[in-house]
Structure formats: structure tokens, C-alpha cells
Design a protein around this nucleic acid. Structure first.
Lengths: 229, 229
DNA sequence: GTCTATACTGCGATAGAC
DNA sequence: GTCTATCGCAGTATAGAC
């Protein structure tokens, strides 16, 4: 029996990078910031699909146009690259949340805005949630603890507590409910590749489909926490 | 091609294995079914943590007490073992659902029973959901499509549609809502290892904690889909 | 049926030319 | 800064003794 072929990245990489470089680079053959961002983008998908130990540096290099040696030049090693990938969306999400006027809104509107923002952010960083899952599965959250993911959660907890105080929301366990809300926002993206095989024709990256998910998620979550009249 | 010829590195392995066996094993008589189940249990956790390509046959063997060669004896190869692991909980979940009198209950009660059953099943198979996620991430659902996961979903869809017809539930998109419900049931288990680092002292395998999650999930889901009076 | 030993390949990391 | 080449170990799978 031939072995499994779970990965298709194998040999032939050395040939594969002819000179795609000189095309997309108008000038300035050396732009360290752009190169780093490019590496992070490719690494984000590879780590999301395979986790820290499963990701292949060759695969990341193949997704960037630069060589594997360059990745080691910019990032100390595989682990350093992983930490950088994990850190980036945490900061970007936090920055996005900071700009929302959540405190000025009624709990209900604040929750709706937060959910909308979180899903939009997930769309902008398509692999964020997958990486977090890989992190939990493989490393039991070791690197998650080092990144700055606490703050975004705090926003959600605060809204829930505010809503319970003023009677808009029913009495819930804030942590468990926060997890449930996060689950509704994200599960769509993490299970799509399975569900697509058993559900009628879907294209979950399709903006219209994402919009429908957003609307359904908001309606679902608000109904779930609102105090019944 | 300067031939490398330093293949001599391989020969040094012979020192390494000091035969840890033969100490005190209950020496169970040869029981192929028990051994197979034992292998599947160990494989379930390893595949859940690392996925098909990331799982290590050595690690699985270490978790069973039998040698790696025995795993290849019982299962054709890594892929065959993976498929067996993926298949098992699908059938067990389906069998469990078949025994629930869902059709005889009102949609609301049926949904509650289904959610309770699904969470209980997840607790009995602690790594089921993680494997499904790994499957989506790494293999884009290729093996998921081969296992029999369609049927359990059908039960949920049917209940939702029944509830919309009789007016118990509000008008929702059945598929998106089914995914949201599955997300609420499962997200707790898949993110615990991350969340535990930022939430106060939790022990999510603790039965009392699981019971709280079950209650919160049921309340959350029912409130989310019920028609407002 | 169960073990030990090992062949062959995949992959992280580095050396060194330019 | 960027590349090519390659080292050395880890990992799948198998052969063959008992």
C-alpha cells in the first residue's frame, strides 16, 4: 500500500520558485515589513490547518514566494513564528473593539454591535478561530495564555453583566454564556468544510452567505439572552 | 551529485530500547476485540489533538500498552485507523438518537432532549468534536464525508422544521440554526483548554461543571429559537 | 499474535556562496 | 538579504524471530 498522501507539499519546491518575485514587486526588491506580513499571512493558514507541530515550514515558504531560509532570518524559529501569528489577530481584534462605542449603547445594541464586529473580524482573518482551536487541541492553550486574548472576552462579559443589571437580559452564567455566544459566532467558520459535504451547495466565504450567517447569529444570540416579556 | 554516503547514522538506534516490557502486566489473554477498542481509544485522543497527518503512531502505541507493530496488524495503516476512529462515534451517536422518542414529543421537548443527549454523548466521547474539527481543518472534510454523520443532523433539522410549522419556534434558516445549536453544544468542549487560562478556576470535565453547561446550553438554545409570545 | 530491529522518507534548521 | 544544498533526527511502515 502506498502511504497516505495527507500532505501534498512534498518535494519539487526548489524548482517551484522561478522568478514570480520580480513581477509583483514594482520596485524595492527589499521591503522587510511587507515580507514579514506576507510570511505571517501564509503562516496563518498553515498553522490554522495543522497547528504548531503539524505545520510545515516548506508549505509556508511555498505560500510566500520567499525561501524557507528567509523565514528563519526574520523569525527565530518555528515557535517564534507561531507566537507572532497567534499574537497578531488578538491585537487587531482588540483595536477594533476599542473603537466601538459599546459603553454608550444599551446592552442589547452593544451586544449586536459586538457580534457583528466579531464576525466581520473573523471574515477578515479567516483562520483566526481555527488557530485558536489548534492551539487548544495541541498545546492545551499554552501559547494562548501568552497572547493577549483576555481583553476581548472582557468586553463581552461586561455587556452581559450590564444587561442583567438593567433587566434587559435574563439571569445567565456570564462565562458559560460568553462561550456560547462565541460558539455561535465561530462554529459556522470552523465546521464549514465538514458541513458542506452534507448540506446543499454552500459557499461560506461568499459574502451573501456570510451576511446571512451574521443576521441569523445576531437574531439567535439576542433571542437567547433577552428577558422574556 | 556528490553522493552523501553517511547513511551510517542509522545503525546507532540499537542501543536505545531497554525493553521496558515484561515487568508486571496483568497478562490478559489474547482478546482481539478488547485490544482493538483499546487502540481506538488511544487513537481517538491522539487524532483529536493532532489530526491525521500530525498524529504519531508511536504516541498511540504508547497509550495502549501494545506495540506499534500490533496497530499495523489490526488496522491496515494510519489512514485506516483514522477512518475507524472517525466512524465509531457517528454510529454510536446515531444509535443513541434512534432510541429517543423524538417524534412523539412536542418540538420544544424534543429539542431539549436532543441537546441533552448530544452533550452527554460528547462527554462519553471526549474527543469526538475535536476530531471533527481537525478533519475540517486538515482534510477539508474529505473523510467526514465518508463517515455517516449526515443522519444525526437530519434529526435536528426535522425538529426545527416541525417547530416552525406548529408555531412553537420562530422562522429561522434551518441549516444555519442547526449549526448554531451544534456550536453551543460543542464549543464549550473545544475551547476549554484555551479559556481555562483566562477564566477563574474551572474543571470542565468535572461532572458538576458539565451539568451547568448542559443547563445553560438548553436554556440558551430554547430561548433562541422559541417564538416570542 | 506479539515482539525487536531497521529501511527509507519527511522535515526543521543551518552553513556558506553570492 | 537572499539563495542552494544538505545535515541529522523523527516518523511510517515492514521483515522476520519467537
Amino acid at each position: 500500500m502506498v502511504s497516505v498522501e495527507c500532505r501534498s507539499t512534498v518535494g519539487r519546491l526548489s524548482k517551484a520558485t522561478p522568478s514570480t518575485r520580480s513581477l509583483n514587486k514594482p520596485r524595492q526588491a527589499r521591503d522587510s515589513e511587507a515580507t514579514k506580513a506576507q510570511i505571517l499571512n501564509a503562516a496563518e493558514e498553515e498553522f490554522a490547518r495543522h497547528g504548531l507541530s503539524g505545520a510545515r515550514m516548506d508549505a509556508i515558504a511555498a505560500g510566500t514566494g520567499v525561501t524557507k531560509a528567509m523565514i528563519y532570518y526574520y523569525f527565530e524559529n518555528k515557535e517564534g513564528l507561531y507566537q507572532a501569528v497567534l499574537q497578531r489577530p488578538a491585537h487587531e481584534l482588540l483595536d477594533a473593539l476599542k473603537q466601538l462605542p459599546l459603553d454608550e449603547l444599551a446592552p442589547e445594541q452593544a451586544l449586536e454591535m459586538l457580534v457583528k464586529g466579531a464576525i466581520a473580524h473573523e471574515v477578515a482573518h479567516p483562520y483566526q478561530q481555527m488557530i485558536l482551536f489548534q492551539e487548544a487541541s495541541q498545546n492545551r492553550g499554552k501559547y494562548f495564555a501568552q497572547a493577549d486574548w483576555q481583553a476581548p472576552f472582557a468586553y463581552l462579559l461586561k455587556i452581559l453583566e450590564r444587561g442583567m443589571v438593567d433587566g434587559t437580559f435574563r439571569a445567565v452564567d456570564p462565562w458559560l454564556t460568553a462561550i456560547n455566544i462565541a460558539g455561535v459566532c465561530n462554529f459556522y467558520f470552523t465546521t464549514y468544510d465538514n458541513v458542506k459535504h452534507i448540506a446543499p451547495d454552500w459557499d461560506f466565504r461568499n459574502p451573501a452567505m456570510v451576511e446571512r450567517h451574521t443576521q441569523e447569529a445576531i437574531a439567535f444570540i439576542l433571542a437567547a439572552v433577552k428577558q422574556q416579556k
